[in-house]
Design a protein around this nucleic acid. Structure first.
Lengths: 211, 211, 211, 211
DNA sequence: TATGAATGAGTTTTCATTCAT
DNA sequence: CATGAATGAAAACTCATTCAT
């Protein structure tokens, strides 16, 4: 009797998911100033319906951001499990950072919108999941002697907050390479490989047309 | 004849300066989406006058950004001269980074506006001055063996572009500490020493207007 | 089910018609530079609603012009039918010209706005209807031997384009009298007869809103 | 002593003439909505100086129109004199009409501005000169039996007011051909020559790029 | 008298949000 | 519950006109 009655709760949930997907896509495509009408249209709804699910634009953006946090938490937890299964913590951390950085680049417009609207993600649960998983990863890395003992979860969040999301992929990779020595106990990878491909000297130059 | 000579040109220059100051202040206070009317009001002018000096909002923002670049160039050149006078390049670079980071934090709204409007700073001269001075500093540090040989001016700009401008001063200091190992040849301070040497923390300590 | 079916579409159509009427009236009253706010106010709407129906001022003006073209087409076709039913083509043409001239006088501001905005009427269908009907009228008149064989539809449009719309009704009537000999095969009425036969003077006599 | 003192009165007159020429040129080039700053710049003056000579834009436009009327008066009087010297009145009238029509086409933007601003030419003297000369021409033509006895000076002005100024030269020529039978006692020139070059059927179509 | 910086009301257009159907 | 028309405040920009120098 609870299963056949999918109509009410399920329909609402599905609509919500459709709106969130459309909102993220539209923001990525047309920037954070995309109008509510466009988002509604992309979700196959009327504005009124959109406002029924999210009382204000800030709420919608907050939900999109929360979804993003959820994905990060999932990713961190998966990395955790692989470490438990025997994978090297440093490798998992490095790969995890790389994935989050790329995701940030994809969703930078979302973050811009969140910031502009002062949207509060609010999803404390997902945030805690992510924090716990990242802490576990760091502890494992520190136990291995690979991660500096004073590196905290806050440091990782600080890095997430400063990803050069609007720069080309090569710049993001270089940025991660510059960051890693601050996290690890290892010296710079290989002092011999010069000439990394940071295209322009100006910030933001060449920001268009990337992956 | 001496009085009227300066009065016209000077009045225009002073008005321009007043507008730029007001624009920067208003953007810092109320975000980059501040209206032209507000800026004009803060400068004690009517909108029309503002538009006489800057034909479009993008021009005004570009001018504010150009002013910022000019200050960075001045700072970098001063550091250069101190190195020439015998100061250690690594110390000057570290202090310079700290100062630019604090300036970025103060003017973060300006940069947001510049990005949103696609404003072209245009001040290639100041940009070149800054680039040359930074290059000189890096070369000196590399000659001392303190800066990694593969670090470029582009790397420094990449860092500038990702300053956690909207974070508290302590976070910015920590962020710089995380970045430095990527630039220098020195290992992390001492694994047991919890007090990491944050160079620019002196002037960042009493910083106004943060969270 | 019968009520809601019409209500949505009908309301939109009625709003559109209300806007068009208000726009035409305001333009006739206050000139073609009338603001969108005024038009909205005259239609009992907010500006936003006006912009929902017509995305730009040029679109609104184009719609008003298209409505005018439609009326001319209707008029020409009606005259055509009367000719088919036995009415003399020359009389119908003369009366038709008189009516269009009076309509032009009423809507002169609209045409001025259309020209100023480069608005594209776009209603090719109505334009074709008008052209075909006028061509038919001319052919019938030429078959009767009343209309000069070299008169074309383009000539009629040329006259329409030069109607002295902002002159008193008497001047418009006199203007038509001066034009007619260029269209017909008949000589000027009678050199001594001071009362020249102005066809459209009946409906032009009581015309509203002129000098 | 009056000649060497050209400074005061003459300088003012020359400035005035320069402004008028610049105003006409700018209006013809950039339409009747050209700004006062542009006109001042084209005349090599500052706006303030322009406003010293013409207290309001309407006054400047009125002066430009008055200049136009003056030229028409000169033209009409010259034609008068040629008739007195033996030239055929009908020929002179026809040529005069053609010249005024072309001048109207050149200065159509001026007339548009005059109408939009409600500028009152005011130059009653030039207007009277023109009227008298035209009356003389018409009387001569009527004495010859070429011009219809009921044609008045007002008719000629009515034609001037409705010149298709924004149409191609061919359309203007055709328009004059359509008008002439209304003025003369002669039948249509040659009923045999069909196909006149009126380009588009729509009013205003093809209005760009003419002589 | 010439200058041109300053004025400020006015114009078009956008968009988050509401509410009658 | 969904719909989408209506709202109206706000933003960028223009331009005739004034006035201190």
């Amino acid at each position: 009797m609870s299963q056949p009655r999918t109509s009410r709760a399920d329909a609402a949930r599905r609509t919500r998911a459709r709106v969130l997907t459309a909102a993220r896509e539209q923001m990525v495509l047309h920037g954070p100033d995309i109008g509510m009408d466009e988002i509604a249209g992309a979700a196959g709804l009327a504005v009124g319906t959109l406002y029924r699910h999210f009382p204000a634009k800030a709420d919608l953006v907050a939900a999109v951001v929360a979804e993003y946090v959820e994905r990060v938490a999932d990713d961190a937890e998966a990395a955790c499990e692989r470490v438990t299964a025997g994978s090297r913590a440093l490798d998992e951390i490095t790969a995890f950072l790389g994935r989050v950085i790329e995701a940030s680049a994809r969703d930078r417009a979302v973050k811009a919108a969140a910031h502009a609207l002062g949207a509060d993600p609010g999803d404390k649960v997902a945030e805690d999941r992510a924090s716990r998983a990242v802490a576990t990863l760091l502890l494992a890395g520190q136990a291995d002697g690979d991660i500096h003992p004073d590196v905290t979860v806050g440091d990782i969040y600080l890095l997430f907050a400063t990803v050069p999301a609007d720069q080309p992929a090569a710049a993001r990779a270089r940025w991660l390479a510059l960051m890693l020595p601050g996290l690890t106990t290892h010296p710079r990878p290989t002092p011999r490989d010069r000439r990394h491909p940071v295209p322009g000297s100006r910030q933001g130059a060449g920001a268009k047309g990337e992956t």
